[in-house]
Nucleic acid binder design. Structure first.
Length: 452
DNA sequence: CGGATTTGACCTGCGC
DNA sequence: GCGCAGGTCAAATCCG
């Protein structure tokens, strides 16, 4: 996620999943049913008491009409009231149980949060050590597999799923819990003043509103894509990973077929959709590697990770619903508009990195800071980013040339660039500069980029 | 012969 | 509810 290599695992406070612009996102503060939550909000806000009255009254009316028989109206009403109360009591006891389970699940979520943070800190330490080693220029080091996520957007979906379920259940129970309170209030004949209830409802709605935003955030995190445009004779970008083609489709509106690849470096790596073209290969990265990446794959991984990270942080609304002003300030940079575009109409937010322009122009488009960063690193990485026509050949030669010096230089280049916070900042500026123009630049089909 | 690729069938989500 | 398009699966085929 961070534009960093193995030595710059994001700090917990800056991790998109765990925090957003310094504001921690607690797992138990996520709403996976925004629609439902909204309904509940509205319900709580305006119609709650009326609705409850309505149900009770209707029920009584209907039952009264249907139970004429030998009993008088008063007897029927009394009996039905008793029934109604016993029903409420049963519901209340059930809701109490749910609340208890809710509490238990909340504790589980807290525990998971703590574990996650601890693990992240360990990762930071480890990667920091590796970074230091890389800076010391260790020679003769063998090309080793370095564990790092490809698109590090938080925990993998597999890991995340149980938490989602827990949070979902938690929220459901929270909502039920609030209903339970209201029912109890009803049964107690309004011991609590309506004003206090209004305040409680307001607090609840505020909380739920935040949960809505967080759920959207999480959804974005999971769905964001990074699309890389590059000129290449090959059918796909040789980015250092080992891809296996598993399908091909004729995409509508594009004479060129769209190919689907999976990473074969791990049996269950959820990875990529790749669209190909005659002269320009569009590679759309989605998901994250769940295995170690070779250094040859780290450059692209870092680039796409950074792009995804910045896309998410720049496109996600802050807690008050506003785009972070610092991001907008950085958007004033006149660079990168020809280099990165945001597809707003895509099903998921997609940042497109256009590497099809010549290196000189690209560096000219970049901010001076970013250009310096690119210039100051070994050419090998500059090529991989700026001269994509050589990328395929570059990686092929890497495959043949397994000399340690090559691997080291590549490692060092990747490490130097991706670990540098200035690079991150520059990339933030470059990518977020298009956020304000997303509508102008959106193509509607991020895969369809036939330049032939 | 084993792994990679091809390709038609199937599944799923979304819009009308 | 239906049709369409995108995405995935899996058997057949290819190739080293």
């Amino acid at each position: 996620m961070e534009p960093s290599s193995n030595h710059a695992i994001p700090h917990p406070s800056s991790h998109p999943l765990l925090s957003f612009r310094g504001t921690p996102l607690h797992m138990d503060a996520l709403d996976f049913f925004p629609q439902k939550t909204k309904e509940i909000q509205d319900h709580d806000h305006t119609h709650h008491h009326q609705t409850l009255h309505y149900h009770v009254d209707t029920s009584l009316d209907l039952l009264t009409k249907n139970t004429g028989g030998n009993r008088s109206m008063e007897e029927n009403e009394a009996l039905e009231t008793v029934d109604e109360k016993s029903r409420f009591v049963a519901m209340v006891s059930e809701l109490h149980q749910m609340n208890a389970e809710n509490q238990r699940l909340r504790e589980l979520v807290d525990e998971m949060n703590n574990n996650c943070n601890a693990l992240r800190m360990q990762l930071i330490n480890i990667t920091q050590k590796q970074h230091n080693q890389g800076n010391n220029g260790v020679s003769g080091e063998k090309e080793e597999m370095v564990p790092r996520p490809f698109l590090e957007m938080g925990v993998s979906e597999k890991e995340e799923q149980p938490s989602e379920e827990k949070v979902k259940v938690d929220l459901m129970h929270q909502c039920k819990g609030s209903d339970q309170k209201e029912i109890e209030d009803k049964l107690d004949c309004g011991r609590e003043s309506s004003k206090a209830r209004m305040e409680a409802d307001q607090q609840l709605s505020t909380k739920l509103s935040k949960l809505d935003q967080n759920s959207e955030t999480l959804s974005m995190i999971k769905k964001a894509r990074v699309s890389v445009r590059a000129r290449s004779d090959s059918t796909m970008i040789a980015d250092g990973c080992q891809w296996r083609k598993y399908g091909q489709k004729m995409a509508k509106g594009n004479p060129c077929p769209r190919a689907y690849y999976r990473c074969t470096m791990s049996s269950a790596c959820p990875v990529q959709r790749c669209a190909e073209d005659r002269s320009v290969v569009i590679t759309t990265y989605e998901g994250q590697h769940n295995h170690a990446l070779p250094p040859t794959a780290q450059a692209m991984a870092a680039t796409t990770s950074a792009a995804a990270s910045m896309l998410l942080s720049g496109s996600m609304p802050s807690s008050d619903g506003q785009i972070n002003p610092t991001m907008l300030q950085s958007a004033s940079l006149p660079c990168s508009q020809n280099m990165a575009t945001l597809s707003a109409s895509a099903p998921f937010p997609t940042i497109t990195l256009d590497l099809t322009q010549n290196p000189t122009n690209q560096l000219g488009l970049l901010s001076p800071l970013l250009a310096r960063k690119f210039m100051s690193v070994p050419k090998i990485f500059g090529h991989s980013l700026c001269d994509q026509t050589k990328l395929a050949g570059l990686h092929e030669s890497q495959g043949r040339d397994s000399s340690p010096s090559f691997a080291n230089s590549f490692n060092a280049a990747t490490a130097a660039i991706t670990a540098d916070p200035n690079f991150t900042a520059a990339l933030v500026a470059a990518i977020t500069s298009v956020m304000g123009n997303s509508h102008n630049n959106s193509t509607g089909e991020e895969h369809c980029n036939n330049n032939a």
